[in-house]
């Protein structure tokens, strides 16, 4: 694409991308660290993750302010308009992902003392891997303005949902086996739910990237993994 005649405008838009990429990097890092802390029962590392979230919040405000300023001063049009609105939406999804990583950090700190059931942890770690991979892919899709890759991320979210559903069943069984497991299992369940929510925000980002590149919303229907906590509960109840 040719550059703007006004160079400083071009620079402002690329600065926006730099900030988003930094935010994305931090969100990825915190999520990985949080899960690692949970898996290794490392309360100290969990605390660090909780504190580190602040930097993401600061970046979010920074991006927000910059977008408002660009709109006020430059009145962006067409692909530029989609770019700044997209940046605004992505930044808010990344901030939420940061919060979810922080929540996982809190769960990790809370259960660092207790030993975790192996199969559940392996299911969780599969979910975390998927969530991280999806997040990385969607950030690449943004950086490369790759609508196809965004579409792939969007479609693949069902894998996270599916893993979540099977993990949910597993934890439920575990709780029913022995009520003493309920405390730990609840924490782990919330951890899993947080990862599933990370997947949802990643999907939002994928939708934004697609719109930003193509100027239209993703239209095909996403194959929806079996979702339903309530149905499962009923089945088991």
């Amino acid at each position: 694409m040719p550059e703007h005649t006004v160079k400083s405008y071009e620079e402002e838009l690329s600065l926006l991308d730099t900030k988003i990429s930094r935010m994305g990097g931090l969100a990825e890092h915190n999520l990985a660290q949080a899960f690692d802390a949970l898996q290794r029962r490392d309360a100290r590392q969990a605390e660090l993750v909780i504190v580190a979230d602040h930097a993401i919040d600061v970046l979010e405000r920074d991006v927000e302010e910059q977008v408002i300023e660009i709109i006020a001063r430059r009145q962006p049009m067409a692909n530029d308009l989609r770019h700044v609105i997209g940046a605004l939406r992505i930044t808010s999804d990344l901030e939420r992902i940061g919060d979810l990583a922080k929540n996982i950090g809190k769960r990790a700190a809370a259960i660092a003392e207790v030993s975790h059931p192996k199969p559940v942890i392996s299911g969780l770690s599969q979910m975390a891997e998927l969530a991280l991979k999806q997040l990385k892919m969607v950030l690449d899709a943004y950086a490369e303005r790759d609508a196809e890759l965004a579409l792939k991320v969007w479609r693949d979210d069902q894998k996270i949902d599916a893993t979540y559903n099977s993990l949910f069943r597993e934890l439920l069984t575990y709780m029913m086996e022995d009520p003493r497991n309920i405390g730990l299992s609840t924490h782990l369940l919330f951890g899993a739910k947080n990862l599933e929510r990370v997947g949802d925000h990643t999907t939002n980002i994928a939708e934004t990237v697609f719109y930003l590149v193509r100027g239209e919303a993703i239209s095909d229907d996403r194959p929806k993994g079996e979702d339903t906590t309530m149905a499962r509960l009923a089945e088991h109840g």
């Binding site: 703007h4 692909n79 530029d80 989609r82 239209e216």
Partner: peptide, 17 residues
Amino acid sequence: FTNPSDKRTQDYITGRF
């Protein structure tokens, strides 16, 4: 102004000419 079809239109309205 949100999603022009021709590249020349896009370049013009976004100040890239």
